[in-house]
Write a protein that binds this DNA or RNA. Sequence first.
DNA 1: GTGTGATGTCATGCG
DNA 2: GACGCATGACATCAC
Length: 632
Amino acid sequence: MKHLKRWWSAGGGLLHLTVLLSLGVLRVDLDLYLLLPPPTLLSDQLLLLGGPASSAYALSPLPASGGWGRAGQLHPKSRDLDPAAPPEEAGANVDGGGQAVQGGGGDPREARSGPLGAGEEETALAEQTAPVPDTGGCASEENEVLRAKHEGVDHSSQHEENEERALAQKENSFQQNNEDENKTAEKPDWEAEKSTEPRNEIHLNGTDISPSLEDLLQLLSSQPENSLEGISLGDTPLPGSISDGMNSSAHHHVTFSQAISQDVNLHEAILLCPNNTFIRDPVAKTSQPQEPFLHSHTTNPEQTLPGTNLTGFLPPVDNPMRNLTSQDLDLNIFEEIDLMSLLATENDLDQIDISQLFDEPDSESGLSLDSSHNSTSVTKCNSSPSMCDEGATGYSTDYDLGAVGGYYQEPNKLCHVDDDSGFHGDLTFQHVFHNHTYHLKPSAPESTSEPFSWPGKSQKIKSGYLEDADRNLSRDERHAKALHIPFSVDEIVRMPVDSFNSILSRYYLTDLQVSLLRDIRRRGKNKVAAQNCRKRKLDIILNLEYDVCNLQAKKETLKRERAQCNKAINIMKQKLQDLYRDVFSRLRDDQGRPVNPNLYALQCSHDGSILVIPKELVASGHKKETQKGKRK
DNA sequence: GTGTGATGTCATGCG
DNA sequence: GACGCATGACATCAC
């Protein structure tokens, strides 16, 4: 029963009642384990890209693109909630929306409802609905738990159909995403750039967001000093209305800065108290020491990207909005950047990608940026490639994370933006991109101001940043994330073999990715099998205990029945003896004298008559019958 | 520090 | 032969 207690302690619960029954001469101790449904388990997908719970931004659910790099964008309209609401509330609203926020709108530690793994979660869910058979006996309660567990295990297969359906949809969307990316990559730079313009409108929600922003700006303008703790809006050249600036292709090169600025304003504004007093995000407070560092990285983007055309998508050097960003913007914003870079799945770094990143409203470019460890990512980028490798892996060097290929080679674009030192060519670009994205965890609760340097695995493990970020990710999940596998571990494990093989063959995957996929699938399958095996073993043990208990009860019953039979036999003997005496007391011989019971006996004949015969004849008769029986 | 249970993983065998 | 499954054995972690 201890097993059961611990087993249920994971997600559900057992109400343990000890009942003492008195059944006549028996006392039976019954351990009643009442099944309590485990707490509602959130979707496993919530774990995938969970973001900080403190994020004040509403993260949209993962769009149909299916890729990892399409989550976490800002929905400015979703922030038309109470401006005074704390960021935690906003995040809670996101999580409470009933949608699987795969883009990282919540603390994964909260999203994960306990130590249950994927299979256990499924089992626990099944156990909630599993009927509990009514069984009797001293071990029936144990069997109830047992059968409930069994049904939970069997119940897991009921989800497979839906999962396969969702998997196929996701796979299609992923393929479509790749196709779209390829199409975009084939376009000239200008065309790709042009193609991103409409997305600006979407990104900012066009007219939907503009009124609110205008209202905010008006509200800010109403301030006598036009300032918010050093944020001088008067120095911020907003090209007309924000919507105009965003929708105008003429202002395309300031889109990014504007986007950031608007988000900053929105973010800052949402922290405004009803009395228009500015409240700083506590996370931002903690990140303030990083500001000089951040600022230095964003000061001269032209130097950051030599030989590239990225400058057009970067905030101008003298853009006051950039100063606003670097000095007063909540540094949580840049965690989103890291998240986006982590989620990036395109192949090459080029101008198109950068423009898409900065302009594409539906992508991670939400620039809704809520991050607290931007400096960490920047520093990682500045680190040597080997360091990036170490930091990127986050686990043993089973997989060389630097060798990312296939469809998932999209570099971390924003790393380019932030880095100001190490880029002297595309090779360096890609190398750093490939590496530093792996260790970026969107859910890192706080940033670390110390420069990133992970000389070894031990130090990497010691890093609180990684500990917090990876704590809720299994090894395979980290591996898959690191290699940009666009499927969750659960999907990889549960998808049919045909789908799995089609994925392996349809997409250009590196050997590393294929190996990782196969390993994840094998380990996942075996993990479930081991869980089932242990449950079966426990089932067998419990059944045996149940059988032992039943047999012991049956033995006691038989003992009681035997005692009762012996007692009845004795009573019958006594009654027979009394009847004998009564009969002989009434018998008289021919002379009227009483018949001696020691010399005579009563014998029933075949016809039912009763004869009184001497015991000698009875004895001889018995001998003759015995002899006849022997002869026969 | 040690024991124990839970869990993940690997190796192996079987269908 | 690939695959899934079952299971023993081992390692690791948490309590």
